[in-house]
Each structure stands twice: as structure tokens, then as C-alpha cells.
């Protein structure tokens, strides 16, 4: 019984009331800022803001934890590699010739002995970490606060072709089905003597690849039935239809959109003209 659905938030907040188009713009602006800046403090503030917004909007903590936990090896890797190795780039960006050491590994260690970690490298790593954190967290913020059907209506209003919007919602409908089917197929293979428990990574890769074959084939065979169903339901891919879910931009949407626009322009201007947000350290 694998049930999953969109982790739609239950809480009513300013985010759930916003039009989906405004939320798309939030996503775009956050992405833009994350790319624009390299200052770890700027990036940290951005990440904290997005995280805070997620929590305020009621995105499930379990989801955020899963996400951050899944990403943590990557974060750690970024911090370490930059701390130890990012010397040339940090020196160039900061226009200095020697960096502040944090510690040095004992010289007798094999291969990595004598390596020196620097504060500047570490902070550059932190900048990368916060950047990716913002980019990852902004997605649930925008998506989980929106009803799928509202998304479709919004997309159509935003001139997204109706066919694309329809594929989006149908994929959402059918992917749980395929996921549970995937698990059924894995079970069926185990029932034919496949000892998954005692398999190495490479063997498992082969097993999973094998599972995908019946999955795709049955999906395609069923899709022919789906095509018949769609036609029987008077579907013709034409955007000229009525919509059960209505969407409308409210004043708060227009307000937010203007703010985001102004802020983005300002941020770009400040970065280019005065170097606000370029990589820097405070010591």
C-alpha cells in the first residue's frame, strides 16, 4: 500500500493565497539572486529567508528534513573541498596573496598529510552550500502551497499551452500508480529467487534496470487505453474549454510582483556597479 500524493500544505497562509504565477516569479527571482551573489552572508540570508518561508507556509518538516538530510553529504563535501583546496580562486576573488588557516593536517598522514584548511575557502564553500539550499527549498515553497488544478488553470492563464498543462496534471495522477507497480515488479522478481538482500551495488543496478522494462512496457500498453478514455471523455487537447478551478490575480499578487521586479533590478545594479554581493570575508 504505497500511497503518496503531493505534500500539499494544510495551513492557509499568504503563500496558499498567492496566485501560482506570483510563486513562479518568486522561484525565478530566488534563482537569479542565488546565481548573482557569491557573498556567503548574502547567500545565508537568502537561504534562511526561503527556509523560514517554507516553515511559515506549513511545508511538512519531515519533507524538509528528508531534503536537507539527503543533501548533507553534498554540503559537507563542498565545505571540505573548498576549505582545503580552494586557494587560487579565493585569492583571486579577494585579491589577497595569503589566506587565513583554520588548521593543518598532520604531515605524516598518507596522501593528505600537510594539507591546510583556510577560512576563505571554507566560506566560499558555505556560499555554494547556501546557494544550492535556496534553490532546493524554493521549489516546495512554490509547489506545495498550490493546488494542482489551480496550477493548471494558472498555467493556461499564463499562456502555457493547455496540452502541456494537461500532461503535467496527468503525470501527477499516474506516477503513484507506476511507483506502486514498480514495487510489485520488484516483489515478483524476488518471488522468482532474486536474492536482493545479498547483492552488491552493481548487481542491484542490473536488477532495477530489469524491473524498468515491464514497467515501461505496461505503461505504454495502458497508455493506448488511456488515449481511448480521453477521447471518450470528450477531450480533444483544445484549450477552448471551461475551467472548474478559477484563478485570479489579487492586489497582493500585483504588489508582490512589482516588489520582486524592483528588487531584482536593484540587486543587479548594485552588484554590477558597486560589487554588492561579490565574494568577500569580514576579516
Amino acid at each position: 500500500m504505497t500511497t503518496y500524493k503531493f505534500q500539499t500544505v494544510e495551513r492557509d497562509s499568504v503563500f496558499t493565497r498567492l496566485d501560482f504565477r506570483s510563486k513562479i516569479l518568486i522561484m525565478i527571482v530566488v534563482t537569479l539572486l542565488a546565481f548573482l551573489w557569491e557573498d556567503p552572508i548574502y547567500e545565508a540570508v537568502l537561504a534562511v529567508l526561503v527556509l523560514g518561508a517554507c516553515l511559515a507556509a506549513g511545508v511538512k518538516r519531515g519533507y524538509i528534513t528528508l531534503l536537507l538530510a539527503g543533501m548533507s553529504p553534498f554540503y559537507l563535501f563542498m565545505l571540505l573541498t573548498h576549505a582545503f583546496f580552494n586557494v587560487a580562486q579565493a585569492e583571486r576573488l579577494l585579491a589577497v596573496s595569503n589566506l587565513h588557516p583554520i588548521f593543518t593536517l598532520p604531515a605524516d598522514l598518507w596522501l593528505i598529510g600537510g594539507l591546510e584548511a583556510t577560512w576563505e575557502g571554507f566560506l566560499y564553500g558555505a556560499n555554494v552550500m547556501f546557494k544550492t539550499m535556496s534553490l532546493t527549498l524554493v521549489i516546495p515553497l512554490a509547489i506545495f502551497t498550490t493546488d494542482v488544478d489551480e496550477m493548471i488553470s494558472s498555467m493556461v492563464h499564463a499562456r502555457v499551452p493547455y496540452k502541456l498543462a494537461f500532461i503535467f496534471s496527468s503525470t501527477f495522477r499516474f506516477s503513484p500508480l507506476l511507483w506502486s507497480e514498480f514495487n510489485k515488479i520488484v516483489a515478483a522478481q524476488r518471488l522468482r529467487g532474486m536474492a536482493l538482500e545479498s547483492m552488491g551495488l552493481m548487481k542491484r543496478v542490473r536488477v532495477y534496470a530489469r524491473v524498468v522494462v515491464p514497467l515501461i512496457l505496461s505503461a505504454l500498453v495502458r497508455s493506448q487505453q488511456l488515449e481511448v478514455v480521453l477521447q471518450s471523455k470528450a477531450f480533444n487537447g483544445d484549450a477552448d474549454r471551461t475551467y472548474f478551478h478559477e484563478v485570479q490575480m489579487e492586489i497582493v499578487d500585483y504588489f508582490l510582483i512589482s516588489i520582486l521586479f524592483l528588487f531584482s533590478i536593484a540587486a543587479i545594479y548594485l552588484r554590477v556597479q558597486f560589487g554588492w554581493g561579490k565574494f568577500s570575508v569580514w576579516f
Binding site: 500532461i167 503525470t171 497508455s223
Partner: peptide
């Protein structure tokens, strides 16, 4: 390509 094929394979990509 029929819409339903596109949907089916999109759902495969999502599930995987």
C-alpha cells in the same frame, strides 16, 4: 506522438 504515450513515459520518469 499521442498525448497518452507522453503522459505514460512522463509518469515513468517521475516514478523512477
Amino acid at each position: 506522438a499521442p498525448m497518452a504515450y507522453i503522459i505514460a513515459l512522463a509518469a515513468v520518469v517521475t516514478a523512477l
